[in-house]
Computed example of a mutant assay.
Amino acid sequence: MDLSDRQRITLALISDTHGTLEHDLLPLLAECDVVVHAGDLVDPVELRQLAPRSGHVIVVRGNNDTPGQWPQDTETLLDSLPEQAEIALPGGLLVIEHGHRVNPARTRHQRLRRRHPEARAIVYGHTHRRVIDTDESPWVLNPGAAGRQRAYGGPGFLRLIATADHWEIESITLPKRGRDTYTSAHKKPQGRP
């Protein structure tokens, strides 16, 4: 997908919903131009709930996105999910993969950077733990779980705002109690790496 001609674009980076997408996130996701799901969707019904402004939803296949775990009669949709996706954004390339094939875990970020040196940022899931690693280029981002299963620190997502000269990452997390509001736990403005 090529969105590099946009002046500014906002992406919601989510992962690991496992069929339990936190519904309180939906209005926040709808405020973004594009939703990117880094795998382990498990229930395709969740795709119908995602309504970003542009209508673009990008999903890659996770280790739990298998015929045995998806509902019957969804094989065609499941088979259409790529292992990896790329989005050309203003200011650089975003690469998405689930990350379960990049092992061992202790060197995952190094290995992802070696696999995708052309990227400005790499998004992966699998661990259910939110990570914003912008210390090196390309950045390595894990949005954590947007579902209710093993949502360490609470369900949430990363918001990426991209322009040609500036990328900014913001972590959005629902509080553990009274999930009717959200908090911004981390906002990290970033210039060109």
Rank of each mutant, 00 (worst) to 15 (best):
M1L: 08
M1S: 10
D2R: 07
S4L: 04
D5V: 15
Q7D: 12
I9G: 05
T10F: 07
L11C: 09
L11I: 03
A12F: 01
A12W: 01
L13W: 02
I14L: 05
G19T: 06
G19D: 04
L21E: 07
E22N: 11
H23P: 06
L25D: 02
L28D: 06
L28I: 05
E31C: 10
H37D: 07
A38C: 08
V42S: 04
P44G: 05
E46L: 03
E46P: 15
E46R: 09
Q49D: 09
L50F: 01
A51N: 15
A51I: 08
S54Y: 01
V60D: 06
V60C: 04
V60E: 04
V60K: 10
G62H: 01
N64Y: 10
D65V: 13
P67W: 13
G68L: 12
G68D: 13
Q69N: 15
W70N: 02
W70R: 00
P71L: 01
P71R: 02
Q72A: 15
E75G: 12
L78K: 03
D79P: 02
L81I: 10
P82Q: 03
E83M: 11
A85I: 00
E86Q: 14
I87R: 01
P90K: 08
G91M: 09
L94R: 03
L94E: 04
V95L: 02
V95H: 08
I96A: 09
G99H: 11
R101V: 13
N103A: 12
N103G: 13
N103P: 10
P104Y: 02
P104F: 02
P104R: 01
A105C: 02
A105V: 15
R106H: 15
R106M: 11
R106V: 11
R108E: 15
Q110K: 13
L112D: 09
R113S: 05
R115A: 11
A119K: 10
R120I: 03
A121D: 04
I122F: 05
I122V: 13
V123I: 12
Y124W: 00
G125T: 01
G125S: 05
H128C: 13
R130C: 14
R130M: 15
R130G: 07
I132W: 02
I132H: 07
D133E: 08
T134W: 00
T134R: 05
T134P: 05
D135W: 14
D135I: 12
P138V: 09
L141P: 01
N142F: 05
N142S: 10
N142K: 06
N142I: 02
P143T: 04
P143D: 07
A146D: 00
G147F: 07
R150S: 10
A151Q: 11
L158I: 06
R159G: 04
R159D: 06
L160D: 03
L160V: 12
I161G: 11
I161C: 14
A164K: 14
D165G: 04
E168H: 08
E168D: 11
E170R: 15
E170L: 01
S171F: 03
S171D: 08
P175H: 00
P175Q: 00
K176P: 05
R179T: 06
R179I: 01
D180V: 13
Y182H: 13
S184I: 15
K187W: 06
K188A: 15
G191N: 14
G191H: 12
P193K: 00
